[in-house]
Design a protein around this nucleic acid. Structure first.
Lengths: 331, 331
DNA sequence: TGTCACATTGAAAACGGTTTCACAATAATG
DNA sequence: CATTATTGTGAAACCGTTTTCAATGTGACA
């Protein structure tokens, strides 16, 4: 059917071994052989099959990035970082989506167990720590952006506790004492950590924790609007609102805007993620930025190291975040 | 090193052929053999290698979706459609990004030539039609969302000419005669088609084409702001603006908003794509919606058909679009 | 009892490459 | 000139599966 290395060998009048040597630029092959093989490859339109090669070498030089869904725009920079690091060592990065289904996540990890890829990076896993730990024992798995408690696999993330704390401390430093938090019910570790940071910041400043100032919603803009609506109907509404994501913060701002609040003065907002769209909104949203590109790059570098190492590194790497201050906090 | 089918065969006291039969649920295998194999698989923790299997079967049951970058949020629905269609026939969908680099796009197509995947779908290719035609002769390639002139590969898209025409006709029907168009300089076929549609709509209504009313920018929000700024400084500014993408339209609206124009009354806006964020903005953006999920689903169905067929279908399939009317057009 | 159909099985070939190994031819060394 | 490296080469083993093919054992049937 399709043209194989044997056909090339026949056409070039050499053995398959020589063809392989030429194609892989091995030394110890004569100039004539190189010429003959190359022209045979050209005329036959030969492209070596990875199926044969991968089997023989027991490696694919492919790494799978498993994400929840393709619509999280800040994944983009992480992926970019991963690709750069991978490409530098001759690996390709493939992406697959779980749509928040743990069963499908497991199915995708099957590509790792079946050696269709050499390693996998989980960006926001839905599987539990115990399961991932068990798999991590035998396979090259890493996590990025999201850590898991008691999880013993290589992880690259930011310190979400400190990030939440820094964000809220900033709001307080701006002179605000009544701080609302909009977080989510479907709790990822990062949102839990950000909430812990919120509480620590209050404690740092001797402000008592008030349950009424915490609103649990979902990840969508609309839930942000609801959160803000809820706050504004309290007897004593917050004057500053920290949201665990920009999407939510934008919804909250939309509500405040529609009710005539002066954003940045009466009411200030802080988001999280610095999504690409966060500067599209008027007023521009202040937010916490995490180093997406750097996290992606690092996780791949460490994962590839692990793939060669006899005793893999299962550490947790924490990269620094930063505050991006814009109009929504009056900056 | 790692446990293979031979180890299982030995442990279960049967031949590798029998193990294979059990694992693939073939008929004609005794109950004892099934038990023995299954328990051996269990105790050894065996997971069959796709490397061996794929080579033997000369198929991978994997399809590669090649996108420009992961930050285009509306890709998400297309991918979802692709996955559903693929999964229904036991295929997996993998995603890879080109970052608008034709050379890297070609590198990724190399996975197809080298049989690491069975087929590939290009979503917005950077390669030219001639190149893609040549590759399409020998390999299972399809295109989605974006067509290419004179390109003879299976394509699923919408009629962007008609979509642009419908959008602009709607603006005119709203009583507007001075219609601005914000499009881009880096021209994809879809933006060219939308511009053609714009011109046709003017002609439909006997409105002369005015070069001043067309602004060429980039794909970012900021370019949209610039476009609107440019229009508003014309001696006789447009009263309606059609942008070839929502991102651009949102930028344009931001500018108008900041200058105090009454959006939906003095000045109306129409975007394109109906991105997830388009309803986050106040005022909500009217836009053209394309059936992303359906396009993704169809392209995979047709591609898989082609992979089995002796004479592949290289048609162009055009799915219907629709207008989504919101506040920005005064609806 | 002999023949036939059928279920179950294992040995071996096949898939398409890479790599080891042995060997010949040549070049370098004493 | 005899020995030793060095270079270039091809035959064959190998990677881990699936599948073909032939062989065995069993029960049914005439």
């Amino acid at each position: 059917m399709s043209v194989t290395i044997k056909d090339v060998a026949k056409a070039a009048n050499v053995s398959v071994a020589t063809v392989s040597r030429v194609l892989n630029k091995k030394s110890n092959v004569s100039e004539e052989a190189i010429q003959a093989v190359n022209s045979a490859v050209e005329t036959l339109g030969y492209s070596p099959s990875f199926l044969g090669r991968d089997l023989r070498k027991s490696e694919t030089r492919r790494i799978l990035a498993i994400i929840a869904s393709a619509d999280q725009s800040f994944y983009s920079d992480v992926i970019r970082g991963m690709e750069v690091a991978a490409f530098a060592q001759n690996y390709d990065v493939l992406i697959a989506t779980t749509h928040d289904d743990p069963a499908h996540e497991m199915h995708l990890l099957g590509m790792l167990f079946s050696r269709a890829v050499d390693g996998a990076v989980l960006l926001g896993p839905k599987l539990d720590a115990a399961t991932i730990n068990a798999l991590g024992e035998k396979h090259n798995i890493a996590m990025c952006l999201e850590r898991l408690d008691n999880c013993n696999v290589l992880t690259v993330t930011i310190d979400n506790v400190k990030a939440g704390r820094d964000a809220v401390n900033y709001l307080i430093r701006k002179g605000h004492k009544k701080i609302g938090l909009i977080t989510t019910l479907q709790r990822s570790q990062s949102s839990i950590d950000r909430e812990i940071g919120y509480k620590l910041a209050l404690k740092d400043n001797g402000i008592p924790y008030n349950e009424e100032y915490v609103y649990f919603g979902g990840y969508e803009t609309e839930q942000g609007m609801r959160g803000c609506e809820y706050f504004m109907h309290l007897p004593s509404p917050p004057t500053a609102i920290f949201s665990i994501s920009d999407i939510i913060a934008i919804g909250a701002m939309n509500y405040a805007l529609s009710k005539g609040y002066r954003i940045g003065k009466d009411l200030i907002f802080m988001g999280f993620d610095n999504i690409q769209y966060s500067h599209m909104f008027v007023p521009h949203l202040s937010t916490v930025e995490q180093p997406c590109y750097a996290q992606g790059k690092l996780v791949i570098e460490k994962l590839i190291e692990n793939m060669k190492a006899s005793n893999p590194d299962h550490s947790l790497y924490t990269l620094p975040h930063s505050l991006v201050l814009r109009e929504s906090t009056g900056d």
